[in-house]
């Protein structure tokens, strides 16, 4: 039987997320992310008014898309999509033109203020290659985050994605994102700070 291609994916169960920001912090220290920029963060949205209200937590990180627009538009081929689906940036190739930042529908790329090149979450591929989970998944105290090979039918993530109603952020962007969410709320995704009307 032909072996199926590996496709790494992440599943975040928002029913379990308590908004503790352990993932953001683990990411910062694991990847040495400078002050003022984030590779992953937790957006916090309050919906409704007391007593009928709820606070929603939305951990956001790079979706490592299957059709990444950042790789399409990079003028120097610094964006690389690995065979297992992780999208990385060649730090020696990037010229810091910011086109990837401008085109990413998820706003997950930033310019490292010290190195002056584009950086983003790449699911800690240095850890993944060593057989570990990404730092955020490891740090999550409620085990809300799950990481693995979606194309392996026996993996926990493949089973969980099959058995639950899952959603991705902005499926309409056509980038085929691979961070799946359980219990994702559209208002929490779309709520924006600068709504001046």
């Amino acid at each position: 039987m032909k072996e199926r291609k590996k496709r790494l994916a992440m599943l975040i169960d928002l029913r379990k997320c308590i908004g503790c920001n352990a993932c953001s912090l683990a990411c910062k220290s694991e990847n040495d992310v400078p002050l003022s920029v984030w590779r992953s963060w937790v957006k916090r949205v309050e919906k409704g008014s007391y007593p009928h209200s709820r606070e929603f937590f939305l951990p956001i990180l790079c979706n490592n898309c299957d059709n990444p627009i950042c790789v399409t538009v990079c003028p120097v081929n610094a964006g690389i999509k690995r065979p297992d689906g992780i999208v990385t940036i060649d730090p020696h190739r990037c010229i810091g033109c910011r086109y990837c930042m401008a085109s990413c529908p998820y706003g997950v790329r930033y310019i490292n203020p010290e190195r002056k090149i584009a950086e983003k979450c790449y699911w800690c591929h240095h850890r993944v290659d060593a057989g570990l989970d990404p730092a955020c998944v490891d740090a999550c105290p409620t085990e809300a985050m799950m990481f693995g090979d979606l194309n392996d039918p026996g993996s926990a993530i493949a089973k969980a994605v099959a058995e639950n109603a899952v959603q991705v952020i902005k499926p309409e962007s056509g980038t085929e994102p691979y961070v799946f969410y359980i219990d994702l709320d559209i208002d929490a995704v779309e709520a924006s700070q600068s709504e001046e009307k």
């Binding site: 984030w38 963060w41 937790v42 949205v45 008014s49 086109y99 930042m101 401008a102 709520a191 700070q193």
Partner: peptide
Amino acid sequence: MDTQVLYNIFHQEAFG
């Protein structure tokens, strides 16, 4: 629905 963003990060300007 009434929503209010309690926390989010600021993004850098790409072009400008």
